[in-house]
């Protein structure tokens, strides 16, 4: 079979229809936006702008969230009612408790380490000659899919008990400490979690670097100048001037990464399949729900995942209130 571009034309027709529909919706909203009351306070006006989002989000996310909550009270087929049994299972089964612990580890370590690395790197490369290149190098992993990244790192962690190492990390161990120092990184109890977390940090640090570097450039030069005149050293400059000035940006980065870490699933799936105590909530939820056919348990894990984000939501609400007071 040779590839025939003509066969593909229907797809572009569909694409055209899609783009047309897109324009119609957006122009429609804007048109109605012209008619509704011009007052800044208007429920009608607000709803008009929100309608596409609300419809899509309700169908795509709200309904599934409700359904999941209902299913979490049911059995493995999603039929009989079992009360809170699935939740009891989560918090009593030692294996699942390990999963919860792992998720906690991810959600704490990934944002902290990735942001720290990103921040330090952004500060160091700021205003240097090779800044653009340096930023690009670290950001590149962001463009790689989770699955691609997992393959890259599985290769780094590869372990051979006999013969030449083909994994870089073990080769380093050989170079530094000799043949006996090699390890099978992905099966080491507990530590293997950290090796997986390293992959996520590797992916996310670029995001932190680019965002924080932009924020650093946004720090008003008057402040820096004033601090300079006060004779602060580089260390103080970093902690007393830079960090407080870009605090909002740091928070956005932390929040985004926390949520991403909670939802992480592909890296664990590709690298270890959750074996050897490396499973995390999002992966366990998937494994229980689909291949494992434990609908109720999978749903309960999803609800726990959802509950874990409440602290972040509360924080966001407070933030919003504060900002309003400032304004």
């Amino acid at each position: 079979m040779t590839f025939d571009f003509l066969d593909q034309i229907p797809k572009f027709v569909v694409l055209g229809v899609g783009v047309l529909a897109f324009l119609l919706v957006v122009l429609g909203v804007l048109y109605v936006g012209n008619i509704v009351p011009h007052r800044p306070k208007s429920l009608t006006a607000g709803l008009v702008f929100l309608i596409p989002t609300l419809v899509l989000v309700s169908i795509g996310l709200v309904v599934p969230a409700i359904r999941t909550t209902v299913l979490s009270l049911g059995d493995s087929r999603g039929e009989g009612f079992v009360g809170l049994d699935n939740y009891v299972w989560i918090f009593t089964d030692p294996q699942i408790l390990g999963v919860v612990r792992n998720s906690a580890l991810w959600v704490v370590l990934v944002p902290l380490v990735a942001t720290a690395v990103g921040l330090v790197y952004a500060v160091i490369i700021d205003q240097t000659r090779l800044e653009k290149l340096a930023k690009t190098l670290v950001f590149l992993p962001m463009a790689i899919s989770f699955v691609g990244a997992a393959i890259i790192w599985k290769f780094v962690y590869d372990y051979k008990q006999i013969g030449d190492q083909i994994g870089l990390l073990n080769q380093f161990m050989v170079w530094l400490f000799g043949e006996g120092a090699t390890q099978h990184w992905l099966t080491m109890p507990f530590w293997n979690n950290l090796f997986l977390i390293a992959v996520m940090v590797w992916i996310q640090a670029g995001f932190a670097t680019v965002v924080l570097s932009a924020a650093i450039k946004g720090v008003p030069s008057e402040i820096i100048e004033a601090a300079r005149l006060d004779g602060v050293n580089a260390w103080q400059m970093f902690w007393k001037v830079t960090v407080p000035s870009i605090r909002p940006a740091i928070i956005v980065v932390l929040v985004t990464m926390s949520i991403a870490s909670l939802k992480l699933f592909d890296i664990v799936r590709t690298m270890t399949g959750g074996r050897n105590g490396t499973s995390v909530l999002a992966y366990e939820m998937y494994a229980q729900s689909f291949p494992g056919q434990q609908t109720g348990r999978g749903a309960a894990l999803a609800v726990v995942l959802f509950l874990l984000v409440i602290p972040i939501v509360v924080y966001q609400v407070r933030n919003l209130r504060q900002r309003k007071e400032v304004r």
Binding site: P40, K41, S42, L43, A45, G46, L47, F49, L50, T53, V57, G60, L61, V62, P64, A65, R67, T68, I259, L262, K263, F265, A282, M285, Y286, S289, F290, G298, A299, A302, L305, F306, L308, V309, I310, V313, Q316, V317, L320, R321
Partner: peptide
């Protein structure tokens, strides 16, 4: 952010919180 109506902030927080609905469950 620029149209004021009752419950606006809660709506925003609600949409924000939906970020965590796991794709797999949807």
């Amino acid at each position: 952010s620029w149209v004021e109506f009752k419950g606006r902030d809660w709506l925003f927080v609600g949409i924000f919180a939906l970020q965590v609905v796991p794709l797999q469950m949807a």
